[in-house]
């Protein structure tokens, strides 16, 4: 589904990603871990097409198409979803209105008619249950005055509504208490099918107790320095990142 080859990217003059290669197949969940500043969020931003990031080398193919060739909205319309680490507020625009606009844009891109209001409402109800989110919250201005947990749940709700092929969760667990974490993780688990895939970016192993990854990759200084199964995450939890860093440094000598 997603094939990243030797991806290098920089912000202004600073090289952040220094050659990342990653293959993600349908039905897989990949966790990307790593110490602060290793390039985790940059990878998410580059995949989603955020401005200010310059890809200097490498390629990203998504279902056979060159993802880097697409604008951010086209990537979304192709089925890439990013759950933001810091969701923005849009005053005066309700989540409901926002979602209806988004869904219709995506449908339009795919040559489908606008969604019927009745169908939209039904879909809303269904997905609301999935992430245990209150309808009142969805009628309020998008993310305005939401708690950290509410914002993250809203992200997962939007992901449920848009039914992406690839969901990227950028440190969705940061700032969540254990209950919110469980709800968010449950949402993701219910959304998982054999046809879609997830990239779960996290600093801590905690989230992976709830979303069990098929693969775990450790990002350090802009490179994937170690890949493994969920056991790697447990090992990291136990020993921290230092031993990997040492390994890398030893190999470099």
């Amino acid at each position: 589904m997603l094939s990243i080859k030797n991806l290098q990217a920089r912000v202004e003059e600073k090289e952040i990603l220094k050659g990342i290669s990653l293959e993600i197949g349908a039905g897989e969940v990949h966790a990307i871990m790593g110490p602060n500043g290793s390039g985790k969020s940059t990878l998410a931003s580059v995949l989603a097409g955020r401005g200010g990031y310059e890809v200097t080398s490498g390629s990203v193919s998504f279902n056979g198409k060159d993802l880097l060739d697409f604008s951010p909205e086209e990537r979304a319309q192709e089925g890439v979803f990013l759950a933001f680490q810091y969701p923005v507020e849009i005053p005066g625009v309700s989540t409901t209105n926002f979602m209806r606009t988004a869904i219709n844009e995506v449908r339009n891109y795919r040559g489908q008619d606008e969604i019927e209001p009745g169908d939209f409402l039904k879909m809303m109800k269904e997905k609301m249950q999935l992430v245990e989110i209150d309808q009142k919250l969805l009628s309020r201005s998008l993310n305005e005055g939401f708690s950290g947990g509410e914002k993250k749940r809203n992200e997962i709700f939007q992901m449920a509504m848009l039914e992406p092929k690839l969901g990227i969760l950028d440190e969705t667990d940061s700032g969540l208490d254990i209950d919110a974490l469980r709800i968010v993780a449950n949402g993701v688990n219910k959304l998982k099918t054999k046809d879609n895939a997830f990239i779960v970016i996290t600093h801590y192993q905690r989230l992976l107790d709830y979303i069990v990854p098929d693969f775990v990759h450790v990002l350090y200084k802009g490179k994937i320095v170690k890949s493994g199964t969920k056991d790697l995450a447990l090992e990291l939890e136990e020993k921290g990142y230092d031993w990997i860093i040492k390994e890398v440094q030893a190999a470099a000598v």
């Binding site: 989603a48 097409g49 955020r50 401005g51 604008s71 951010p72 909205e73 990537r75 979304a76 319309q77 979803f81 990013l82 933001f84 969701p87 923005v88 849009i90 926002f98 979602m99 606009t101 988004a102 869904i103 844009e105 995506v106 891109y109 939007q158 848009l162």
Partner: peptide, 11 residues
């Protein structure tokens, strides 16, 4: 804000 909207498929 604009990127957030873009990321949801809104130009």
């Amino acid at each position: 804000q604009l990127f957030y909207c873009n990321q949801r498929g809104i130009n």
